[in-house]
Design a protein around this nucleic acid. Sequence first.
RNA 1: UGGGGCGUCGCCAAGCGGUAAGGCACAGGGUUUUGAUCCCUGCAUACCCAGGUUCGAAUCCUGGCGCCCCAGCCA
Length: 565
Amino acid sequence: MSEQETTAPSNFIRQIIDADLKAGKNAGRVHTRFPPEPNGYLHIGHAKSICLNFGIARDYAGGKCNLRFDDTNPHKENVEYVESIQQDVQWLGFDWEERLFYASNYFERLYEFALELIRDGKAYVCDLDAEQTREYRGTLTEPGRESPYRNRSVEENLELLQRMRAGEFEDGAKVLRAKIDMAAPNMNMRDPTLYRIRHGVIHHQTGSEWCLYPMYDFTHPISDAIEGITHSICTLEFEDHRPLYDWVLDNISIDCHPQQIEFSRLNLQYTVMSKRKLTQLVDEGLVNGWDDPRMPTIAGLRRRGYTPGSIRTFSDRIGVTKADNSVEMGMLEACIREDLDKNAPRAMAVLNPLKLVLENFPEGQVEELQALNHPKDESMGSRTLKFTREIYIDRADFREEANKKYKRMITGGEVRLRNSYVIKCERVIKDDSGEIIELRCSYDPDTLGANPVGRKVRGVIHWVSATEGVKAEVRLYDRLFSHPTPDADKEVESFIDHLNPDSLSTAAECVVEPSIATAEPGSQFQFEREGYFCVDSRESSQERLVFNRTVSLRDSWAKIEGKGK
RNA sequence: UGGGGCGUCGCCAAGCGGUAAGGCACAGGGUUUUGAUCCCUGCAUACCCAGGUUCGAAUCCUGGCGCCCCAGCCA
């Protein structure tokens, strides 16, 4: 993959696999799986899991990783999600080869295993409704009570389950439960539900074939075993479920028993990572869809301009442990800057234009200048810049007066135009309200590719020809939330209260150099001295160029200036 | 007064009884036609706390403390 990834990731899960291999377990096989439920788009936390699971398959000899949709709850799932998930995994650079599966592929076999449990007296049909079931379950500190239906005969249970499948009972009228231990200190072992009835939902894979749907705790271990998974990696909240995972496999006739291993999920500061909350942001229109560039979804990051390699690097750097974590945004940003610094061609764009007239440059003349596309990679070639009498510079690059620390243009001062000449500011023109509307300058024709003799020019600013430049809209993004852990703040009613009102600002009147006017959607640039930008893949067009700022350049000037205040 | 986890630098994270890796961030300095990049330098006598074992403990033992997860017919 990317040359960026140099250090081989090592973590406790790989150590377990190493030890298993050494002990001769699983006949030397290493087989993982990534098992998303298609009930939303994948986010950066899933990327961590994808990189972990597919990364293991990639790094171990003969290793494999399946993509399996955990599609046991048709109520929340749909094909848009199954398609987006496949696209995102592929985009991240991973390949499940011919191993694309659905838990629903196994519905018939799952049902057979359920019959086996019943025959063995290890499962029963229960008529308690949801509320009663909750009451019977007990609490964290008190044991539960056994259901009055717990001791139905095998024959009756068999018949009832068949009738449940045949659609004879309404939703919620009956469930199939495992017969384990209502006094177990682990709540998951208090006769967990294995099947529930769901009429009238069209399952995205099985249509209306079933009205009986298996629960995760029953489906997951069996699906893993059917696929010959050796290491079933999941997040920490399933640690309590492991005894049930093992119970299921120990009590049916199946010759494979994968090892479940749990790691802690990713928490990224200033965003939220639960599918429920992300769905809420989308549904309530608080963002512009799942691929809104402010979203921590893979689709959002992609549209924002994050590269697959940068996300893989990030996943490697944050590591895999069982400790709760809260990763700073700076970590993610460092990864994309590193990638783009190396790979993005440079260009110039003026986000907040201020007109500047070079009084000693001939009117109507266009001088062509050559500029390197990358300051230290000549293989990226060069491009032609159009230099004219009227140009734009950024308003932030001019001050009427400033101290020595300010290295940009000031009245009467000189500055280097990037890839061009040294100019001097002669006059400032203001409108009636006192706002600066134009700078009158002169250029020094002897300074192209050469420093002026006898004086030093400290600053370099970027520019775009006013007559040859192309208009563009640039979208500047900031963190989606203004609180580092928006969903952990109990002082506030909802995480929504912490949405950052300034997470999107639009610079509608930007001017970019003509060389990028026809750039393909998604193509990326460093706008020098500004940051990394990409052509928006959704809304940019030849008529109206739209760029997204992926991330700004590191800005030590902002720090210096900030300190002075 | 239930069960399961976790506690090493601001953040992430190595460490697996032999005397605290690395990355991000931060702070200095150098190079630079991007205040970018790049390059140096610095940044835990200290590993949640308290005892104990040991020649030696972040690593082992005991007892505390703190944080996270679990009472869906969600995953």
